[in-house]
Design a protein around this nucleic acid. Structure first.
Length: 1019
RNA sequence: GGGCUCGUAGCUCAGUUGGCUAGAGCGCACCCCUGAUAAGGGUGAGGUCAGCAGUUCGACUCUGCUCGGGCCCA
């Protein structure tokens, strides 16, 4: 057994490939209870990094530990292949290669097909690279048969999930503001956003009231108290100021006097470009608002915002004239600062144009920022949109896909890019006197994670999964486990048909899921509570098309049956068919005449001409694809999800804690919609890698190359890295540093050296218990007071600890127990004690063979317990133990199971003996100052406690002497504490170096103890 | 700004329902061994338990705030 992991690990890999470990395990475990673990698909790009390494090693620990408990543990690795990151990269590459211009000459479908071919090749390349790298991590998985989200069968299955959700009425299409990337011209998922600081204009804008009188009425003025024109010069107010002996003369009208000015509503925004889509101002009905005189203007502001806003603008003459609660302001109308009349809204905007430009109520209005009056553009904000729906305000979005205005805006803005428009709008507002105050404002703002450009809220027609509104209903013609769904959802404790939204359902269902660590439950609950409907459509080429068709009239057709029909085509031909086939071919398995989801008129018009249908341009959010993997991968491969008690759900998902919002949640939602239950039983999360200062790992760190998988394998060996991963408190952040790998290497070597020492002492030993063939001493013949019985009892305890820790996914505890056992129990205690008998007892003596039997059991057991973690080293040691020839393909520790307890009985006095030995050790240390530096120069006498009486035999005294490393030991009831004898004047055995009192000159002239003389056969 | 989470010796971590002088391993220092030797054994020195305040007879443990990280959001 050699140390060189760098050379030998690849040899192990080759051997395992030859053995076909994964396949053989499947065969041998067939029919055993299953443990089903489902791999979350990493994205198929880049090289795998430390984050992958920890994730994949932890997963491998699960697979191997469960497998070594005799369970059947199938494990299918997967990759997430579609999506913007690959498409983005491919587009850049095509541009660099000058293919972009050629692309532009193609039709839309042709262009997408070309791009998709490139994307597929790209994804395949990285899947292959990842497979190789993950294999190099020594992980055990069905790498020959992985799941890829771009496989035709996977694509078809994913559309079946969509079809079932359609059946449940949980999918809808609607104009709605979504995060939109103008740079990539697509809607973005929450997960595709990054928040970065950005500078924007912060503007306080005055919107003139349409009816001044109504505003003054709202603030309690009466018409009689209107300020007279003469008074405007301020004679009265000047007088009152004088009486107040103020140096400053406010020009504000005196209290109760109604000013002549037309009042304004002051709003605040950091997106001036959205002002042309402003259709309402929102106030909080509960807040107090003030009518304020500010340097000659009369403005409405939240009372609590007056000081802050006017101080910021350095206003001089600020007087609160009157106050009113927000509900008094509702319905007041205003004039848009630069849009004349009402814009011409497109049909799909809906709403009633007559509702525009008035003050509405909204409880999300706060006083932390701004003026307490919120600029509301239903086409450009989530909350604005909700308010708009309630108030029947049109959903108006004058911004095109590319971030430029359309023609519905004032002429001076038409065609302008919105970021440019920010400046123009600010200038326009200043010039027209509507700008109260503006400044540059730095805030955290969402950016497109690929292009790193800012995103906007933009209203577009998108597909949604209904999480928050429609009720889950399993009473319909569900094609998938219909009966079982009803069983599982209709029971007395789980009333799912009684008006639960998917979100409510999700919140309830996570109570049935086990979370490791437990706080994951709260975290996920919090995330679910704030979850909006799920926008599942994207406007790109590289993805799974949403099988929607449009009639020439603009009506959309996507029914459960039509989606299933397309699904069949995708299963047969892959989703490229969407771009290469026409509607009639894609719907060849579809009979609209029999589709009850269609209205009778639609049934007729579609049946008459399938060819007139236009294919939709949307693809699915990649999260929908990976979130369907419980079905598209696991159901496809035999996971049933049919038992009412959920015992056939997937046992475990294990990912980083970011997946509470990502894959875990987005797997839960479709599964609840389709099968009415979570797809998983346990969710286990790990933390993230941070640097030695606890900061986020930077990809640009100067020593980044040392953290690449290849160089880690070369520098440390994978078994060391795996040993390191097993040592981590992975549920929290994990500090990473090359130095730490070095330390893991040190402790790895300790374990390896222990195994190596034991193996080297088994060279002349055959394990068979058949007296003629092998040398085993049956363990039931072990004296309870022997070191061998003691160490096997310790090993049984270790086995329990380790297996229990493995079952709890607590690899750190297993790691620590294994290390402590090798380092302390074996290396410092047992092995140090039995060295003498291994070296000096007669080769075939009962005592030596008994110890070798023990060594064999220990080595075998340790190899098995270590196998899930250091899978190369354990297998190498295991094969060395069995004295396997290099070409032996049969023996492999990874086909074995954990050891059974040895059940050896050890004397109850061992603990007391160790206590006594500890005291002796201290005395021996003290004796060094008296010149007894080598323990073999010492003898020890221990007080004879009752618990130790059974050890007071010739054999027992030798066990004690060997444990202490001294030449002789004995017990004496008459001494109170440890006594050390100086034996330096006694003869020393030249073979065993012991001064045990039997040393004398033998017939061959050598100085030997009785034992050694017998061993070499002299008298 | 919000939700969840972490902060114990130089390093990695334990510390059970609040209760003896806060533990382990590594590393370090010193010593032994030289038949596990690019090994092995022994001994020892290291901590205002992030900070502040509170509850309590008693707080590393409970509560609040502050500081510094992480993930996910806004």
């Amino acid at each position: 057994m050699k140390a060189n992991l760098v050379q030998n690990e690849p040899a192990s890999l080759k051997r395992w490939a030859g053995v076909g470990v994964y396949k053989r395990l499947r065969n041998e475990r067939a029919g055993k209870p299953r443990f089903v673990f489902h791999d979350g698909p990493p994205y198929a790009n880049g090289s795998i990094h430390l984050g992958h390494l920890m994730n994949k090693c932890l997963k491998d620990f699960v697979v191997r530990t469960k497998s070594m408990q005799g369970l059947d543990v199938p494990y299918t690795p997967g990759w997430d292949c579609h999506g913007l990151p690959i498409e983005h990269k491919v587009m850049l590459e095509m541009q660099e290669k000058g293919k972009a211009t050629k692309l532009a000459t193609l039709s839309d479908d042709q262009r997408k097909v070309v791009v998709r071919r490139e994307c597929q090749a790209y994804a395949e390349k990285y899947v292959k690279l990842h497979k190789e790298q993950m294999t190099r991590l020594l992980t055990l998985a069905d790498y020959e048969n992985p799941y890829l989200t771009m496989q035709p069968a996977y694509e078809g299955a994913t559309l079946e999930v969509l079809a079932t959700l359609l059946e449940r009425g949980l999918v809808y299409r609607q104009l709605k503001p979504v995060h939109w990337s103008p740079a990539n011209e697509t809607a973005l998922a929450d997960a595709e956003l990054e928040y970065e600081d950005r500078e924007d204009p912060s503007v306080y804008v005055d919107f003139e009231a349409a009816d001044a009188g109504a505003v003054y009425d709202a603030f309690g003025y009466t018409a009689e108290n209107t300020e007279s024109t003469e008074e405007e010069e301020g004679e009265d107010t000047a007088a009152s100021d004088a009486t107040a002996s103020s140096a400053f003369k406010s020009k504000a009208p005196k209290p109760g006097t109604r000013p002549l000015q037309r009042p304004c509503f002051m709003i605040w925004t950091t997106t001036p470009w959205t002002l042309c889509a402003n259709l309402a101002i929102a106030v909080n009905p509960k807040f107090e608002y003030a009518l304020v005189w500010i340097d000659g203007n009369v403005t409405v502001l939240a009372a609590d915002a007056v000081a802050r806003v006017t101080a910021k603008a350095k206003s001089e003459d600020v007087v609160v004239l009157a106050r009113a609660t927000g509900d008094r302001l509702l319905g007041l109308r205003y004039k848009h600062p630069f849009v004349e009349g009402v814009p011409v809204f497109p049909k799909e905007a809906g709403g009633d144009p007559a509702t525009c430009y008035k003050v509405v109520g909204a409880d999300y209005v706060t006083l932390e920022d701004g003026t307490g009056l919120v600029h509301t553009a239903p086409g450009h904000g989530a909350e604005d949109y909700q308010t708009g729906l309630r108030e029947k305000i049109p959903v108006y979005c004058p911004v095109k896909e590319n971030g430029a205005y359309d023609d519905s805006v004032p002429a001076w803005l038409r065609g302008m890019n919105i970021w440019e428009a920010n400046k123009s709008v600010v200038k326009h507002l200043r010039d027209s006197g509507h700008m109260f105050f503006d400044h540059v404002f730095t805030h955290s703002y969402p950016h497109d994670w690929r292009s790193k450009t800012p995103v906007i809220f933009r209203c577009t027609e998108q597909w949604f999964v209904d999480v928050t509104r429609g009720l889950v209903d399993f009473g319909d013609s569900n094609k998938f486990n219909r009966a079982e769904s009803q069983v599982s959802v209709g029971g007395p404790t789980r009333v799912l048909n009684a008006g639960l939204t998917v979100k409510d359902f999700a919140l309830r269902s996570i109570d049935e899921v086990k979370f490791v660590p437990e706080w994951g439950r709260n975290r996920m609950r919090g995330m679910l509570e704030s979850r909006p409907d799920w926008c599942i459509s994207r406007q790109r080429a590289w993805g799974l098309p949403i099988p929607a068709f449009f009639l020439p009239t603009g009506e959309v057709v996507m029914t459960p049956a039509s989606a299933r029909a397309v699904s069949r085509v995708f299963r047969e031909q892959g989703s490229d068919a969407w771009f290469t086939k026409d509607a009639a071919e894609l719907l060849k398995h579809y009979d609209p005449a029999k589709d009850e989801a269609l209205t009778p008129s639609l049934r007729l018009s579609i049946a008459s001409s399938l060819a007139s249908l236009r294919k939709g341009n949307d693809i699915l959010d990649v999260w929908f694809e990976s979130g369907s993997s419980w079905y598209s991968c696991m159901k496809e491969r035999g996971q049933a999800f049919t038992k009412a008690d959920h015992s056939d759900a997937i046992d475990l998902y294990l990912e980083g804690s970011d997946q509470h919002r990502g894959w875990f949640q987005l797997s839960l939602l479709p599964a609840l919609g389709v099968i009415g239950r979570p797809p998983f039983k346990t969710l286990l999360t790990h933390g993230f890698m941070v640097d030695r200062d606890g900061k986020k790992l930077s990809k640009s760190r100067p020593d980044a190359h040392r953290y690449e998988v290849d160089s880690l394998c070369t520098e440390f060996g994978m078994d060391v890295m795996r040993w390191w991963v097993s040592s981590l408190a992975y549920e929290n952040d994990v500090k990473v540093d090359v130095e730490l790998f070095g330390l893991a290497g040190e402790s790895y070597r300790k374990v390896r050296n222990t195994l190596r020492f034991m193996l080297s002492n088994l060279a002349d030993f055959s394990p068979s218990c058949d007296g003629s063939e092998g040398h085993c001493v049956p363990t039931n013949q072990f004296p309870p007071t022997s070191l061998d019985a003691w160490v096997l009892r310790e090993f049984d305890a270790l086995r329990d600890t380790v297996v229990r820790a493995y079952n709890a996914f607590d690899y750190q505890t297993a790691h620590k127990a294994l290390f402590d056992f090798c380092n302390t129990t074996l290396s410092a205690e047992y092995l140090a004690a039995v060295k003498d008998r291994l070296y000096c007892d007669k080769e075939d003596s009962q005592r030596r063979r008994r110890t070798q039997t023990t060594l064999w059991d220990l080595t075998d057991g340790l190899c098995r317990l270590l196998a899930p973690i250091m899978c190369h080293t354990a297998d190498e040691a295991f094969r060395a133990l069995l004295k396997c020839a290099p070409d032996d393909m049969k023996s492999c520790v990874h086909l074995e199971e954990f050891p059974s307890p040895t059940g050896v009985h050890a004397h109850v006095g061992w603990n007391a003996l160790f206590e006594a030995a500890k005291a002796a050790q201290i005395e021996l240390e003290r004796a060094k100052s008296r010149g007894i530096e080598n323990p073999l120069d010492a003898g020890v006498t221990l007080p004879l406690a009752d618990a130790l009486r059974d050890f007071d035999t010739p054999d027992g005294r030798v066990e004690l002497a060997d444990l202490l490393g001294v030449s002789r030991a004995n017990f004496d009831a008459s001494v109170k504490s440890v006594v050390i004898q100086d034996l330096r004047d006694q003869p020393r055995c030249e073979r065993s170096w012991k001064r045990d009192g039997t040393v004398k000159q033998r017939t061959d002239g050598g100085m030997l103890t009785d034992r050694d003389a017998a061993a070499v056969g002299v008298a």
